[in-house]
């Protein structure tokens, strides 16, 4: 089970320290992951607050991943893949784009803070774009602070 094994783990509590933004990024393997690799190879320094989860394609990204990430305390979520026409699987990103479009409309309607969900296309050649984007997102999330509205949901109970 996912949760059981993790209850017991030990990790120094960051809470005693200064709050740091927590950002989870869902990226495709062929474009954005490789773009982030290129940022590394090119030694472009950027903010260390993004945790990348690699999927084969943006087409694999379920909108529930985004909700799960916020449930796990993310202050921001990035979703990034290949530019249109550039998908390794020819069309996965086109399907993804429709889903993200519809789902973000739903989130926005619910008053969700849309500055915390960032969709982008970053190609394997765009290491610089990735680094710049991460810096910008981290800067914005720092400004916004912890995603209290979402994190508070846990405390609320219907009963």
């Amino acid at each position: 089970m996912v949760s059981d094994e993790m209850e017991t783990e030990g990790k120094p509590a960051l809470s005693e320290k200064e709050w740091q933004p927590k950002i989870i990024a869902f990226v495709c393997n062929w474009c954005t992951y490789a773009g982030a690799d290129l940022a590394g190879t090119s030694r472009i320094v950027y903010e260390p607050h993004v945790r990348v989860i690699k999927l084969p394609c943006t087409g694999r990204i379920d909108v529930s991943f985004i909700i799960k990430a916020f449930e796990q305390g993310a202050d921001g979520v990035m979703v990034s893949g290949c530019h249109p026409g550039d998908c390794h699987y020819t069309a996965g990103n086109y399907h993804a784009r429709r889903r993200f479009a519809g789902f973000r409309d739903l989130l926005e309607f619910c008053g969700f803070d849309m500055r915390r969900v960032i969709f982008s296309w970053v190609s394997a050649a765009e290491g610089k774009k990735w680094a710049d984007l991460v810096n910008e997102v981290v800067g914005k999330i720092r400004e916004l602070g912890p995603f209290k509205e979402y994190q508070n949901l846990l405390a609320q109970s219907a009963l």
Binding site: I67, E71, L153, L154, A155, Q156, S157, A158, L159
Partner: peptide
């Protein structure tokens, strides 16, 4: 029964 799951 918390709101977080309800939202999801």
């Amino acid at each position: 029964s918390h709101t977080r799951g309800n939202v999801h």
